[in-house]
Nucleic acid binder design. Structure first.
Length: 496
RNA sequence: GCCCCCAUCGUCUAGCGGCCUAGGACGUAGCCCUUUCAAGGCUAAAACAGGGGUUCGAGUCCCCUUGGGGGCACCA
């Protein structure tokens, strides 16, 4: 059997990280088996369609490296891949069901439905529909239709018995048919509901495995019955667990902005992960560890390695949360593995996009010493703040002196440093030379003969930051002129 | 309210009847290294929700309870 999986989002807003997660598993399964991964847009609720959502979706999926073989942008043998463009097919198949007695036209008005709902609910029945149009005589149907009264098409669910939903992760999930009513499959505006649309599409697009959220498990009996009524072979159902909010309360949602213990925003939208400067391969690795394990106690792996071991059947059905702190750790691991050049080629455009232009040369000097300090690219905003602008030095004496190095000693060491730097030719302005000399100067001006206190002071003067990358690399990246300028400011405070 | 799903450290998880004095990872704490902060190394605390069965033997199988989640639209 050819494996064909699909990701079928609604273009109702930004892509959710949970969507990426479920798309990932479908994608991995298709790629593992040399199958096809299809992108289909389920836009049958036209009121909820948001302009630009499709573009956001495509951009996000691409960023994560989840490519598709058939889709709205590239077409394919079973297109179109946008449901509103397939409207005629759904109508035809709805008629087909009516002709064979599997479905019927329901002329209930909104007011009628409202009354029905109330009457039913008074009896503790929340199904909302009493099937009153199910067995209307043909003549009556024709009369109502001729009068121009709008109608929906409802699918006849069995009145009794059970319906079993074969779920790959849970086995047969059995439902009592009494709890169902006859659901709308074609709306009065002529567009299908999800139930009809996805069954028709998954059949004709020859989908072999349906991966979707558990929120569909309860309505899956309708889909099972629909497949049976059509006489079509059922794809394998894989209902993926929900991703919970970090506190474990409810589905992960962008409506309720949450914050982690460290005060960082909880990211929910796919594009927020891009913006935050995570590496896509790290995020994908992170997501693959949710509900699925590589095995052998390994958490970090390449996608190629994962595909060898991946099986949909191994996914855990238990609801889960995203361990965000683990993402930070993983992303840092990936960043550390990058070569200096590779880091620069990612960091430079990222910073530039955020209005922080620094030369690639300066970044390359810093690359080896900032790698282990970046959990994500955006951490560079704070870490490298001293490079972006020349703010006047804000410091008091207490920050520029040390119990082992008083004001006079600090000033003396600073003057010596300035003299040393100013005498250097550009060719001599090297990391090794600067490191050696500044250490010597530091050692000569403290009581204990250790360079530490002086280097601490120098760090603050040069970077204006309490926390910064290692001093010598920072000096080289900054350049002689800017460093001397800052030393002068430091001296002014010490002597003024 | 009814129906469905789920249940191992704080979190993500390994475990598919004996290999478990329950393993790994993140996080947390301590120590080492160290010019800040990291990274790195070492160590520590930390879990089978509860109760019944089945079995020679249960984290692993069954049932109940509890807890959490999901669903009950002319939304997907």
């Amino acid at each position: 059997m050819t494996v064909r999986t699909r990701f079928a989002p609604s273009p109702t807003g930004y892509l959710h990280i949970g969507g990426v997660w479920s798309a990932l598993f479908g994608w991995m399964f298709a790629r593992k088996h040399g199958g096809r991964f299809i992108l289909r847009i389920e836009d049958t609720d036209t009121r909820r369609t948001v302009p630009g959502a499709l573009e956001n979706l495509i951009e996000s999926l691409r960023w994560f490296g989840l490519d598709w073989d058939e889709g709205p942008d590239i077409g394919g043998p079973f297109g179109p891949y946008i449901q509103t463009q397939r409207a005629e097919r759904y109508r035809e198949w709805a008629s087909w069901l009516i002709d064979r007695g599997h479905a019927y036209k329901c002329f209930a008005t909104p007011e009628e439905l409202e009354e029905m709902r109330k009457a039913l609910e008074a009896r503790g029945d929340r199904s909302g529909y009493d099937r009153r149009y199910r067995d209307l005589p043909d003549g009556e149907v024709a009369r109502l239709e001729a009068s121009g009264r709008p109608y929906v098409v409802r699918f006849k669910m069995p009145l009794d018995g059970e319906t079993a939903v074969p779920d790959l992760l849970r086995g047969d999930v059995v439902f009592d048919n009494k709890q169902f009513t006859d659901y709308v499959i074609l709306k009065s505006n002529g567009l299908p509901t999800y139930h009809l649309a996805h069954v028709v599409d998954d059949h004709f697009m020859e989908i072999s495995h349906i991966t979707r959220g558990v929120e569909w498990l309860n309505t899956a009996p309708i889909h099972v019955r629909l497949f049976q009524a059509f006489g079509w072979e059922m794809p394998v159902f894989v209902h993926l667990p929900v991703i919970l909010n970090p506190n474990g309360k409810g589905k992960l949602s962008k409506r309720h902005q949450a914050f982690a213990d460290d005060g960082e925003k909880i990211l929910v939208r796919a594009d927020e992960f891009m913006e935050a400067g995570y590496l896509p391969e790290a995020v994908v690795n992170f997501l693959a560890n949710i509900g699925w394990t590589f095995g052998g106690d390994r958490e970090k792996f390449t996608m190629a390695e994962a595909l060898v071991r991946f099986e949909l059947a191994d996914i855990s059905p238990a609801p889960t949360r995203l361990p965000y702190s683990k993402l930070d750790w993983l992303d840092n691991q990936y960043i550390q593995e990058l070569s200096d050049e590779a880091l620069v080629s990612r960091l430079h455009p990222y910073l530039e996009r955020h209005g922080k232009a620094i030369s690639k040369k300066a970044l390359l000097v810093l690359a080896p010493v900032i790698k282990m300090r970046l959990k994500k690219l955006s951490d560079a905003f704070d870490l490298l703040a001293f490079l972006f602008e020349d703010e006047p030095l804000q410091a008091g004496l207490e920050q520029l002196t040390h119990k082992k190095m008083d004001r006079a000693a600090a000033a003396a060491a600073l003057r010596e440093t300035r003299a040393f730097l100013e005498a250097l030719t550009p060719a001599e302005f090297t990391l090794e030379r600067i490191a050696a000399r500044l250490t010597t100067i530091g050692e000569a001006h403290t009581e204990t003969g250790k360079a530490g206190p002086f280097l601490g002071t120098l760090r603050f003067i040069v970077t204006g930051q309490q926390v910064s990358p290692p001093l010598f690399e920072s000096i080289v990246a900054l350049g002689c002129q800017r460093v001397v300028g800052r030393i002068n400011q430091g001296l002014a405070i010490l002597t003024g």
